[in-house]
């Protein structure tokens, strides 16, 4: 199975964290569907040219977080937990909100002004869909 993950040598974070983050994103956007098989540890290691132990570590941590399920001798699948997607989107949302808060600070907006801007954006979206 071909994977399109990209490991950066100049990214300061350890490789296993980069792998974890990209797998989360793949799952969050639905590229890797719930309950579906994902590349085996060895397959992914070979295609990324990183050591087996690094990919194994990423998979173990993802399993501990309840994102994937590894079955002995059968490979790994994306967990079928229905709240999984929401959990991931939630993390994604937090990241964006942090960014919004930073930009607000930069522009000198008060939390109240910031909140009303978010409300406006939300209203616009509701109108578009109604």
């Amino acid at each position: 199975m071909h994977s399109d993950l990209v490991i950066s040598q100049t990214d300061g974070r350890p490789m296993y964290l980069q792998i974890m983050e990209q797998i989360r994103q793949r799952i969050a956007v639905g590229d890797w569907e719930q309950g579906k098989e994902i590349p085996s540890i060895r397959q992914l290691a070979v295609s990324l040219r990183v050591s087996v132990i690094t990919v194994k570590r990423a998979y173990m941590e993802l399993e501990r977080d309840g994102i994937i399920v590894t079955q002995q001798g059968k490979g790994s699948i994306v967990a079928s937990d229905p709240k999984l997607g929401a959990k991931l989107y939630d993390q994604e949302l937090d990241k964006h909100i942090d960014r919004v808060a930073q930009l607000g600070e930069l522009l000198g907006l008060t939390p109240k002004e910031l909140a009303s801007r978010v409300r406006e954006a939300s209203d616009r979206l509701t109108k578009e869909y109604s």
Binding site: R42, Q43, A45, V46, R49, V50, V52
Partner: peptide
């Protein structure tokens, strides 16, 4: 170098 490293990893596909 990358060709050689890639080929070494490919060997490890067989456990």
């Amino acid at each position: 170098r990358q060709e050689v490293l890639g080929e070494l990893m490919a060997v490890l596909a067989d456990e």
